[in-house]
Simulated scan of single mutants.
Amino acid sequence: MSSGAAGAVGGAVGAGLGGRARVTVAGVTVDTLTEEQVVEHVVTALRQGRGGHVVTPNVDICRACSRDPEVRAIVEGADLAVPDGMPLVWASKLLGTPVPERITGADLIWSLSAAAASAGLSVYLVGGLPGVAVRAAEVLSDRHPGLRVAGVVSPPFGFETSAEGLAAVREALLRARPDLVFVGLGFPKQDRLIGLLRADLPHTWFVGCGSAIGFAAGAVRRAPEWMRRSGLEWLFRLAAEPGRLARRYLVDDLPFALRLLTSCLLRHAARRLRPDR
């Protein structure tokens, strides 16, 4: 079996923080929570003075974890990991350890901002092209009256390769001291940055949210709801940005997803054919 196929199996059940159920799918352990439960967990932790890190593994992230131990450690070190990708939801069901739903950073930026507005918590946005994060903050504030936006920053390309670039982002966040930070720089860049910042802001929750800031600002169009539910959001994004996403989706992710679902389907069939059933 290839390393990609080996990473496609899972099904183990364990316990996460606070006794939450966790399952392994595509070689990555995720929490079996609904989006509402994720929001409740984060807000409760903030009220108790505890920070954390939310990561949303999708097929691309699972594929990267199967090849790179450093990337796997980033995902395993997060306080909450929730599946962003219908193939992971389908695979978990075939394995007999279903997760309740797909949860994306693009959804969490709305639901967590709503909760922050209600609870009097502040948010901070990191990412996006110049002006995009500012627009996203305006849209979020309009949608959720009372939301406190502690600040926004759109770091220049390559900022993470220089001490000065990293220091500028770090100092901006230390001045703001936000409760929630949405970091939309793409995986694993955003989550490496979160790893550097957590020690300075131990009471803050960080969410690696990918393209969520661009979606919230309206700078990037999101797939219709029916495409998200049916696992076709990737196709919508591919049509919108073929030059950037063709290799990632068609050459890297699609074969991995097919191996994942085939492996899980075979395990599902073998389990149903066992004599003891």
Rank of each mutant, 00 (worst) to 15 (best):
L232T: 04
L250I: 14
V123D: 01
R229I: 00
C65M: 01
R198D: 04
A168H: 13
V181G: 01
L17Q: 02
V25Y: 01
G120M: 09
Y124V: 05
G27T: 08
A26H: 02
S66Y: 09
G16Y: 01
V30G: 03
P188R: 05
G51I: 04
P130D: 07
L260R: 06
S230M: 13
Q190C: 05
D31W: 07
G4F: 13
G14T: 01
G10Q: 03
G146K: 12
S230R: 14
A26S: 06
L265H: 13
Y124W: 11
A199K: 14
G105Y: 08
V9F: 02
L258G: 05
V59K: 03
L147I: 08
S122V: 13
A223Q: 11
G208I: 08
T161V: 11
G218K: 11
L94A: 13
A269D: 11
R143H: 14
V183F: 08
A133D: 12
V181P: 02
D252H: 15
G18W: 03
K93T: 14
R170C: 10
S92M: 05
S154N: 13
A5I: 13
V220W: 11
S2V: 00
A12T: 14
G105P: 06
I103L: 04
S111H: 09
T262F: 13
L80Y: 07
G51P: 10
D84A: 06
P100W: 04
R229V: 13
E101S: 09
S113C: 07
T161R: 15
L180N: 02
A117F: 09
D252Q: 13
W205A: 08
M86R: 14
T97L: 00
L193T: 03
T262C: 12
G120T: 11
G131E: 12
R47V: 00
T44F: 00
G208Q: 09
A172D: 13
L238E: 10
L185H: 09
A6R: 15
D79V: 03
T32M: 05
L258T: 13
G158M: 04
E241T: 02
R47K: 14
A119Y: 11
S263L: 06
A176K: 09
D68N: 15
